[in-house]
């Protein structure tokens, strides 16, 4: 497995976790829980962005793996 595909896999895993978390945020009844979920979603958003940038940089360095 190439580095790019590994990073992409991790990104996908994180995004799936985010989606589940969003679902729970929408279903929760408790205000405090919702607030914590929102906060955590914001933090993970930053990580997702960083990983995306890293993938872009890797693709620029090694264009032969682009799109995989």
């Amino acid at each position: 497995m190439t580095v790019i595909s590994k990073v992409k896999q991790t990104l996908a895993g994180l995004q799936s976790a985010q989606a589940t978390l969003k679902l729970y945020e929408a279903q929760s009844q408790n205000e405090e829980t919702i607030r914590v979920y929102q906060e955590m979603l914001d933090t993970t958003d930053g990580i997702v962005k960083d990983l995306e940038n890293r993938i872009k940089a890797l693709e620029y360095e090694e264009p032969q793996y682009k799109g995989l």
Partner: peptide, 16 residues
């Protein structure tokens, strides 16, 4: 499962 997923991502980031 969500918790395990997050922990796995954390481990991935460390190994990267």
């Amino acid at each position: 499962m969500l918790f395990a997923n997050l922990e796995k991502t954390h481990a991935d980031l460390l190994s990267f």
